[in-house]
Amino acid sequence: MTPVIAMAAARYRYPETDHDALGPVDLAIGPGEWVGVVGPTNAGKSTLCYVIIGLAPQFFGGRLRGEVSVFGSPTASQPVNERSRRAGLLFQNPFTQLSGARERVDEEVAFGPEAHGLPQAEVEERVAEALRLTGLQDLRARHPLDLSGGQLQRLALAALLAMRPELLLLDEPTSQLDPAGSRALFDVLRGLHAAGTTIVMVEHRLEAVAAMCPRVIALGEGRLLADGAPAEVFNRPEVQASAGIPAFARLAALVGKGPPLPVTFESAVEALRG
């Protein structure tokens, strides 16, 4: 099967810098996969998202070498707005995502589908669905700038979901959400995953990655440090030294369990019961 994302010896350098922020990276992500991306600050996690969505280099400038294809088309030759029908990126800072042109939450959510010329009835259906999934129905008439940080992050996600993307890239989607909001977001992602959406999720909360993502890639200084199942990746010393260690693994280590350390709540309960 054609991978959704295919990268071969891909390297990217921002303008006016003297080193590659990413790469060389070889990576294939198949349809319906849910991949967690972990690593320290400046490891290249956001850059990986920008390269996949094509903002690097199309928006940021700089130089991309090697091959990057999304849905079988090289990103270099396809305009970002054409890809935005099929792939969406949730930015780390939700302020970045606002159109700035709309004065109501529901109008902001409608912005993408309207810009792509969908019929009004379908726009309305998609907006209603996106607001429901993100729990924003009661705030639909608010001005986007009157929202709290967490509400704004949910709005940014709603605007993306209204596009019904086949590939969803999420750069720290829960950073401003409260625990209930995080749980709700992860429920939405589980639903999208079950429906076949391909998801790439940058996340510092390693417990969440370990609990949900069947596959994890760890980045360090722009390169792939590890790629595999969470239980394997989070037990690698070089990953622990850079990306850190999930909370339950930390607690298990604290009382002398492992290696291998349990990385999820359930496996930690099991390991510590004995």
């Binding site: 320290p40 600050t41 780390q92 720290e172 950073s175 401003q176 390693l206 850190g244 260690i245």
Partner: peptide
């Protein structure tokens, strides 16, 4: 929200 965006070392 000081932990926002912070990696493990941060």
């Amino acid at each position: 929200e000081p932990t926002l965006g912070q990696d493990w070392a941060g």
